[in-house]
Lab assay of single mutants.
Amino acid sequence: YFQGQLNAMAHQIQEMFPQVPYHLVLQDLQLTRSVEITTDNILEGRI
């Protein structure tokens, strides 16, 4: 994955969860590489 793709995914998640800091979303995406998994992590309070 290149950074631009991760940034696009992070923006997509931020639209759904504007209360979660962008850098935390991006940090999780770098591990998961998945909008779905990061979204689940937010919903389950891991982020």
Rank of each mutant, 00 (worst) to 15 (best):
I13H: 00
V25N: 01
L26Y: 10
I37P: 01
Q30R: 13
F17C: 03
Q14L: 14
L26S: 02
E44N: 15
L29V: 06
D40H: 15
A10K: 02
A8N: 10
I47H: 02
F17K: 01
G4F: 12
L29K: 00
L43M: 09
I37C: 07
I47D: 01
F2I: 12
Y22C: 04
G45Y: 05
I47A: 02
Y1T: 12
Q27D: 08
F2W: 15
L31E: 14
I37K: 14
R46C: 06
H23W: 14
L6M: 10
L26F: 09
H11A: 14
V20T: 06
T39E: 04
H11I: 13
M9S: 05
Q5H: 11
V25G: 00
Q14H: 15
I42T: 01
H11V: 11
V25T: 02
Y22G: 04
R33S: 09
E36H: 08
I42M: 04
V25S: 00
T39A: 10
R33T: 07
Q12N: 07
D40N: 15
F2Y: 12
L6C: 06
I37W: 09
I42R: 01
V20L: 09
L31K: 11
I13R: 00
Q30T: 11
I42P: 00
L26D: 02
M16K: 13
A10V: 11
Q5Y: 13
I37S: 08
N41L: 02
I13N: 00
G4S: 14
D40R: 15
V20R: 00
D28C: 05
V25I: 15
G4D: 14
H11N: 10
E15G: 09
F2H: 13
V35W: 09
L43E: 06
F2T: 15
S34E: 03
Q30M: 15
Q12K: 13
L31W: 11
G45P: 01
Q27T: 08
Q3W: 08
L26M: 10
I13V: 10
L43G: 03
T38G: 00
I47C: 05
R33E: 10
V20N: 01
E36N: 08
Q3T: 08
Q27G: 07
S34F: 03
P18V: 03
V25R: 00
G45R: 04
R46I: 07
D40T: 15
Y1Q: 12
Y1A: 13
L43H: 06
M9K: 05
P21T: 05
G4Q: 15
E44S: 15
E44D: 09
M9E: 05
T32H: 06
A8S: 09
D28A: 04
H23M: 09
N7Y: 15
F2A: 12
T32Y: 05
M9R: 04
H11R: 13
Y1V: 12
T38W: 03
L31G: 07
L29M: 03
Q19E: 13
L31R: 13
Q3A: 10
E36Y: 09
T38R: 00
S34N: 08
G45S: 05
V35M: 10
F2K: 09
R46W: 07
L24R: 06
T39V: 15
S34C: 06
G45W: 05
R46L: 08
E15S: 14
N7R: 14
T39L: 11
L43S: 08
Q27W: 11
D28T: 03
L43Y: 06
P21H: 05
F17S: 01
G45L: 05
E44T: 13
M16Y: 07
R46G: 03
G45M: 06
V20C: 07
R46V: 06
T39C: 12
L24S: 06
D28N: 06
T38C: 04
A8L: 12
T32C: 04
Q30F: 12
Q14T: 12
I13M: 05
V35G: 05
H23Y: 13
L6H: 03
V20D: 01
L24W: 09
P18C: 05
H23P: 06
Q19G: 11
D40P: 01
Y1C: 11
Y22E: 03
R46P: 02
V35Y: 07
M16Q: 08
L24Y: 06
N7F: 15
P21N: 07
D40A: 15
H23S: 09
Q5F: 12
F17Y: 08
I13K: 00
Y1L: 13
L29T: 01
A10M: 08
R33Y: 13
L43Q: 08
E44C: 11
I13E: 00
Q3E: 14
L29S: 01
Q3K: 11
L29I: 07
Q5N: 12
R33N: 14
P18D: 03
V25F: 03
A10C: 04
L26N: 01
I42G: 00
Y22S: 04
V35E: 05
D28W: 04
N41A: 03
P21M: 06
N7G: 10
T38E: 00
A8W: 13
F2Q: 12
T32F: 04
I42V: 05
R46K: 12
H11Q: 13
T38F: 02
Y1H: 13
E36L: 10
